[in-house]
Simulated assay, not measured.
Amino acid sequence: MEGFPAGVRLRLMARDPARIAGGGRGVERVAGEYGDPGSLARALVGVRTAFLVTARVGGGDDAAFVGAARLAGVRRVVKLSAAAVLDEGADDLITRWQREGEELVCASGMEWTLLRPRAFMSNCLSWAASVRSEGTVRALYGGSGNACVDPRDVARAAVRVLMEEGHASRAYTLTGPEAVTAVGQTEQLGRLLGVGLRFEELGVGRARAALAGRYPAPVVEALLQSAQRQLAGAKAGVGDGVAVLTGRPAGTFTAWARDHLAAFAPAPVTEETGR
């Protein structure tokens, strides 16, 4: 896979291995589920370094994986966490869960490294449908800045810490090169698409209703609390973690958007021919 030296053996675990994109020589796909100890044990046989990504808030997945990794003799765990853990004012459900996950890894007896990204630029793909159909972006607190990061930079950083020595007991905060707002992202997308996009500010009530269609109620409230911290400026700080780990500047939102513009572009209109 991209970024890994030739000859490195990779094992990728997912509930449905057939859905894992990418691959190539030396890549093995295996079925695994955090709630199935047997599947974790099988997936970790012979593994020396593991990259831990969990998404089920409060589900105990970090604990399940750490326990299985320790039993399997894994030497090093790199955990994907979140930049919010460093914010003393952040006490929402998601941030508490990430802190607990970090504590589990750090107390595991294995070598550990923490990657703490700010929000992914790819989160704005949730706007794609309304951009395509209405030319509109809807978001909460559209004027608040977030130093969001290109997920490709997070991947490059992960490869470095997985492959190199010297990162044990260290944590890296990964951000983009500047804080951007939803209003600013809307303007940049519009310029790239060559159209005038409209930004529509969501109130808290409408934002809660929109999120409720995608997440459980406790997670919705945690996301709204997180948005409040962003409004207060808690997510605008820029760090050098990407450059330190990858040796290259963090990617801009414009560059990310340009490479993913097809997701936002309206489908071409075609005329149906008569028969």
Rank of each mutant, 00 (worst) to 15 (best):
R42E: 14
V57A: 15
G26H: 07
G32F: 02
R29Y: 11
V30G: 12
G32R: 01
A43C: 05
A55R: 08
T49R: 14
A31S: 09
L52V: 10
A41H: 09
T49P: 07
L44S: 08
P37L: 06
R42D: 04
G58D: 08
P37W: 01
R48Q: 14
A43Q: 08
E28R: 15
A41R: 12
L52F: 07
A55P: 11
A55S: 08
D36E: 02
T49C: 09
L52A: 07
F51G: 07
A43F: 11
L44W: 09
G26P: 06
G46W: 02
F51I: 06
F51N: 03
G58F: 05
F51W: 12
L44H: 12
V27A: 01
E33W: 05
V47W: 11
T49Y: 09
T49G: 13
T49K: 03
G38A: 10
G46I: 04
R29C: 02
R42A: 09
A43T: 05
T54E: 09
R29K: 08
A55W: 10
A55F: 06
A55M: 12
E28H: 13
A50C: 07
A31T: 01
F51T: 09
V53Q: 10
A31P: 08
A50L: 12
D36P: 00
A43H: 07
V53M: 10
R56V: 12
